[in-house]
Design a protein around this nucleic acid. Structure first.
Length: 442
RNA sequence: GCCGACAUAGCUUAGUUGGUGGAGCGGUGGACUGUUAAUCCACAGGUCGCAGGUUCGAGUCCUGCUGUCGGCGCCA
């Protein structure tokens, strides 16, 4: 039963002249009543199978001729290298349809649906996401996504970080409670986590270097091409570290991701029309760093209306990224613009020791992080500034009461990184079943 | 939360000043021995998102609703 032959290997010439048994799905089919051209797909590619009427039994020829797009088939035949545009093809000797498609309900995703959608974001394709997954564009995207996930794991594991898991049901927020999903919890209220961070800080004195990749949930009614309500969050926390140390890892992991997909997913990137030199630049360059004050001056010199102390929203980030060809950091935001867990800069407590990493080409923020407020006095002062009650944060304060140390970390939006590196139009293209404020199905 | 669009066959869409809704793809039947989104002929397929209203007459004009898309804010 196990599958022995893969289209990717057939196309690379491993079986020229040999007989193979091909298991896959019909991608396209055409031809006459004497010869049928059936393009078969598997997870590694597509290959044209040529079924000549007199080369296989009448029954097999009939079956393969009648099978509709997305029928699953087992085809046996001889691999032949050709000069035709599609390269290798298979001269069919036997054909069986395993899972047929009923002509009364043909595969709904047609050329017209694909061509028109381009990025794949029509309502129809979103409603049929479970079927859209098997199209070329989505398959390619999922392969790149897998490599991005793998690269994040290998980056941290190669540097002796410990993978550590936090609960997804939580009782409080990391920041502003308005964006929490509330779920009933045996007569009480619980919430879906927005971030691993608070729980990571609890384990920081135990593990010192830790990371995770897990879903985070934000109940924001965001309607943009960079937001999901459920997204994959790669987070790290490191003891004995400054803002600069954390940034080194942020730059390191993003460059490692770019390097990995360049190495493992070159053809997939090209399929999506991504320029490899551009990705190479993301992989090899140093990422510039700019302080908030400098960013405000730059914006003001460009005629943008902004006052010191305002947070930098997306429209302003976008203007800043125009000056860069690679990701760049923005650091040292005003204390008043950032939540309590960011540590004030001892050199100038008007600022906090934080950073955002902005992707170029208009993709915007992919990392947010910084040094944490780590002493008991400072954390109480910072929480006090926000008029936040301290009770929900008792465990967080405890971490500072028992041997606090300088530490920091960041959160990386994995789906955003996939969107950016793949050159996709919308974050929905980069995740199999996107969740936003208007869609939880399929 | 705010702003702006859109909704016609399974899909992608055309539809003029309001006068019996067309096409391409997909499907079915037929032709064709090398096709590349194959081609050619024929057929089937429509409560024009829903509910009201204006009118002799509404896919088309008006109101409301629903759904979807795009943008802002928020952020990863």
């Amino acid at each position: 039963m196990a599958k022995e032959f893969w289209i990717g290997d057939i196309k690379s010439g491993s079986y020229d002249g040999e007989e193979v048994e091909l298991k896959g799905w019909i991608h396209r089919t055409r031809g006459s009543n004497k010869i049928r051209f059936v393009v078969v797909r598997d997870s590694t590619g597509t290959v044209q199978c040529v079924a000549k009427r007199d080369s296989l039994s009448e029954q097999d020829f009939q079956r393969i001729s009648e099978a509709l797009i997305e029928s699953s088939v087992v085809v046996r035949g001889i691999v032949q290298a050709t000069d035709r545009e599609h390269g290798h093809e298979i001269q069919v000797t036997h054909a069986t349809v395993i899972g047929p498609v009923n002509p009364e309900r043909p595969f709904p995703i047609t050329e017209s649906a694909m061509v028109e959608a381009d990025g794949g974001e029509t309502e129809f394709l979103l409603d049929n996401r479970h079927l859209y997954l098997r199209t070329g564009r989505m398959t390619t995207m999922l392969k790149i996504r897998s490599s991005v996930f793998g690269a994040i794991h290998s980056y941290f594991r190669d540097r002796d970080f410990i993978e550590y898991q936090a609960p997804n049901f939580v009782s409080g927020a990391v920041e502003g409670g308005s964006t929490l999903f509330e779920v009933p919890y045996f007569g009480r209220k619980a919430y879906l986590t927005q971030s691993w961070q608070l729980y990571a800080e609890a384990a920081m004195p135990a593990l010192e270097r830790l990371y995770t990749m897990a879903p985070s949930f934000r109940a924001e009614k965001s309607r943009t091409r960079r937001h999901l309500t459920e997204f994959w969050h790669a987070e790290m926390e490191i003891a004995w570290a400054s803002n600069d140390d954390v940034m080194e890892h942020g730059e390191g992991v993003v460059r490692h991701i770019a390097n990995t997909i360049l190495e493992d997913r070159e053809s997939e990137l090209e399929n999506l029309g991504r320029d490899l030199e551009t990705i190479g630049r993301f992989a090899d360059s140093d990422y510039p760093r700019m302080r908030y004050d400098e960013a405000v001056e730059t914006l003001q010199s460009k005629g943008v209306e902004i006052e010191w102390g305002q947070d930098l929203d997306y429209s302003k980030e976008k203007i800043l990224t125009e000056d860069f060809e690679v990701p760049h950091f923005l650091t040292h935001y005003p204390r008043i613009a950032k939540p309590f867990y960011h540590r004030p800069d001892p050199d100038d407590p008007k600022y906090v020791l934080c950073h955002d990493l902005l992707a170029p080409e208009g993709y915007g923020e992919i990392i947010g992080g910084g040094e944490r407020t780590w002493s008991e006095d400072e954390i109480l002062e910072r929480i006090g500034e926000e008029d936040t009650p301290t009770e929900p944060y008792e465990f967080y304060i405890d971490i500072r009461r028992y041997g606090g140390v300088p530490h920091g970390g960041f959160g990386l939006g994995v789906d955003r990184v996939c969107t950016w590196l793949a050159g996709a139009e919308h974050i929905r293209e980069a995740i199999p079943f996107p969740r936003d404020s208007r869609r939880v199905t399929p």
